[in-house]
Design a binder for these strands. Structure first.
Length: 261
DNA sequence: ATGGCTTATTGTATAAGA
């Protein structure tokens, strides 16, 4: 008999409308306690609350038409839901937070940035700065905090299949990596790297060029945990199984297992 | 060859993703 654990997941589903069957199958097979979704790409009115409830999951969603959209799912009570980053004017729906079993769960879809010479890249850096400033306060209020999401940053060269080709490009550029490291200085920890030091461990693969089959990917989806949660971490793994299905998301789930909290 | 594939859009080509 194993002791009960608390399982948190992040998954960019790249359209929840298309990926709902994969999500429901995955929930049934894995029974996670918290799931953070990114790129739901739908308005709240179209969010599949009923199908998720039937599968045993409560949900809170911060969505919009066509782009972005984030959600938190749990079989437990989802309390004190907050949308967006307070005091940061942003039309794009990229943040939702809630308390679940005493853990402050922050679900984030970080700006992609498109290209380092673009306005979208400047927006990405501003957005990451706003996230950092807000989380500094949140960590004081909520010592047990986890920041799960699609960061759109590969933190180190070992998180990139071809660092030479990617050098200086969006998703790996030094200012983005500096913004990631600045989050860590708040007392957050990259839970995957608590357990695995290997290169070639990826969470996203381009749909083109048979990139998944050739493992040409990036590790850009992360679960950061506060000091108080770090000591509870039992394992963090990337589940590549959903990426092998027909019509998959280009991202695959990252799973953090905590000792019972 | 700066492409390839996938998703959404009051579509039939374009924008965006990463």
């Amino acid at each position: 008999m194993t002791s009960p654990t608390f399982k948190l997941v992040t998954w960019n589903v790249n359209s929840l409308n298309v990926r709902l069957p994969h999500l429901l199958d995955w929930l049934n097979a894995n029974k996670p306690d918290v799931v953070c979704l990114q790129e739901t790409k739908q308005e709240d009115a179209k969010f599949p609350y009923a199908a998720l409830k039937e599968a045993g999951y409560n949900a809170a969603h911060n969505g919009q038409k066509t782009y972005n959209g984030v959600a938190i799912l749990s079989p437990h009570a989802i309390e004190n839901v907050q949308l967006d980053i307070p005091d940061f004017a942003d039309e794009q729906k990229r943040i939702i937070s809630a308390d679940i079993n005493g853990v402050r769960v922050v679900c984030a879809y970080v700006v992609n940035g498109q290209a380092v010479d673009s306005d979208k890249y400047q927006y990405k850096l501003r957005w990451l700065d706003a996230l950092h400033r807000w989380l500094a306060d949140e960590l004081i209020k909520h010592p047990k905090l986890a920041l799960l999401g699609d960061y759109n940053i590969a933190p180190e060269d070992r998180d990139c299949h071809d660092p030479a080709t990617w050098q200086g490009q969006v998703l790996v550029s030094e200012p983005e990596r500096a913004a990631f490291r600045k989050l860590l200085t708040l007392g957050l920890h990259d839970s995957f790297r608590l357990f695995n030091q290997d290169a070639g461990q990826f969470t996203w693969w381009d749909y083109r060029m048979a990139a998944f089959r050739r493992n040409m990917g990036l590790r850009i989806d992360h679960i950061l945990v506060s000091d108080a949660l770090k000591e509870k971490c039992l394992d963090c793994t990337i589940d590549v199984a959903p990426r092998k299905l027909e019509r998959p998301s280009d991202h695959t789930p990252v799973v953090l297992e905590l000792a019972s909290i």
